[in-house]
């Protein structure tokens, strides 16, 4: 199975340790690009290498898959999109993204259809879930990407001293 593929003028590919350290730092090194998950930003290259190593291990166990999205021509990475918590018994997974400011809703609308097709058709998953911090930067985006709002889960984690509610969205293979 080929996990790398092109979608229009973009390329979705698995990350490469050693080559993608700077790109990953540009995505995961800025707190405002992570507040929707939420998680703390990475601060140095050791953390980036550790993140890359964990991405590889989780992919090898098929519990997660991570794609870096870049322009076909300029090869500038502008997004990491992943499926995590893959549950092969329930045929479900959680979608997560980290985006640079250059990645707009229009860009995601161009990238996601092929990615979703791969997830539902090639991987055979049925339910893809997206959890965003309530009131995050990306509120309103899931619906425009074809996801349905399912509710808000209260106080799912504590982040920087505050209880965080997560809005849940889903897209089904049959939608």
């Amino acid at each position: 199975m080929n996990w790398n593929f092109s979608t229009g003028v973009f390329q979705c590919r698995l990350p490469v340790a050693g080559d993608d350290n700077n790109a990953l730092l540009s995505l995961l090194g800025k707190q405002n690009q992570l507040n929707h998950i939420p998680r703390l930003a990475l601060e140095n290259m050791d953390q980036v290498e550790d993140e890359l190593r964990r991405m590889v291990m989780r992919f090898e166990n098929r519990e997660a898959a991570f794609w870096l999205i870049e322009g076909q021509y300029d090869q500038q990475v502008f997004a990491r999109i992943s499926i995590q918590k893959i549950n092969w018994m329930m045929l479900s997974a959680q979608l997560q993204w980290e985006l640079t400011p250059e990645c707009t809703l229009d860009t995601l609308q161009a990238v996601l259809p092929d990615l979703l097709s791969f997830i539902f058709t090639e991987l055979g998953l049925h339910r893809l879930e997206l959890r965003l911090v309530k009131g995050s930067l990306y509120e309103g985006w899931p619906e425009q990407l074809g996801f349905s709002a399912e509710g808000v889960l209260p106080q799912q984690q504590e982040f920087e001293g505050k209880d965080v509610d997560l809005a849940v969205y889903s897209r089904l293979a049959t939608d």
């Binding site: 329930m90 045929l91 049925h126 339910r127 399912e150 509710g151 889960l153 209260p154 849940v168 089904l172």
Partner: peptide, 22 residues
């Protein structure tokens, strides 16, 4: 708090919703 569509698998390609309370 949420109704998770088709989040519970009941058969080969059959699913049921999970209603999540808190």
């Amino acid at each position: 708090c949420a109704v998770l569509r088709d989040a519970w698998r009941t058969g080969d390609r059959e699913f049921a919703d999970i209603h999540q309370f808190h």
